[in-house]
Amino acid sequence: MKEMAASKYIQTAKYLSLYWILPILVLLLWKGAALLGIIHNYTLPSPDKVIQTAVTLTADGTLAGNIIISILRVLEGFFLALAAALAVGVAAGLSGKFEIITDFILQVLKPIPPIAWIPLAILWFGIGEASKIYIIFIGAFFPVFLNTLDGIKNIDRKYIELARVYEVSKKRVIKQVVLPGALPFIMTGTRLGLGSAWICVVASEMIAATRGVGYMLMDGRDLARPDMVILGMIIIGIVGKFMDDILKKLSTVMIKWN
C-alpha cells in the first residue's frame, strides 16, 4: 500500500513538473530579456513589474472590482443566451417545420461576429449595461443553439424505436431520451458559449465602459501603462481557463454514464 501511495506521488510530481515547465521557462526568458535590456519597460515591462502592479491594484481593490463586474456581466448574458438557445435549439431539433422556418435567419446571423453588433448595440441600448449584455448574449447564443440542434439530430434512432415499442409518451421521450441523449453536445455548446461570452465581455468593455477587465486594458493603453495591459490580459486568460475548467468538471458529473 505504501509503495502504491509513493508511486502515485511520483506520478503526480511528474505530471506537475511537465505541466509547469513551459510556463516557468517563459517567465524566466521574459525576466532574462528584461535584465539584458532586450525589452523595455515602456513596451514590455519585466514580470516583476507586472506582479508589482497586480499587488498594488489588488490592495486598492480595483482589480477584484474589475474582475467581478466582468464576470457578473458574462453570467447575466450567458444565462439569458443559454435559456434562449436551449429553447430554440430543442424546438428546432424536435420540429422539422420550426427548423425550416428559422433556418435562413439563424444561418445568416451566425457568421456575423458578435463584436460587429457593437455599433448597433450602442445605438439601441446606449453605453450602459444592456448593450454589453446584448453582445454577450449574441456571442453565447449560437454555440449553444447549434450544438443543441446537432445533439438532438444525432440521437440514435434506435432509442426512439425502443420508446415506440413500449408506447412511451412524447413528453417522457423528450425528458428521458432526447435531452439526455443530446446532453454531451449541449455541454460542448455550453463550454464554447461561455468561452465566447467571455471574449465578448472584454470586447464590449473595450469600447464603452468605466469598469471591467476590458476597461482595464483600455485604461492601461490610455495611461501608457503596458504593465496594466499585460496584467489585464493574463487575468482574462486565467479567468477564462477557470470558467472552462468548472464547466468541464460539471459535464463529467452530469454525463456520468459515459
Binding site: 432509442y159 415499442v165 408506447e167 431520451v177 454514464w257
Partner: peptide, 17 residues
C-alpha cells in the same frame, strides 16, 4: 407497436444514461 408484444433487439438497447 404495443406492450403486449415484447421486442428484443440484437443490441440490448438499454438507455446508457
Amino acid at each position: 407497436p404495443g406492450r403486449e408484444r415484447g421486442f428484443i433487439f440484437q443490441d440490448h438497447r438499454l438507455l446508457p444514461w
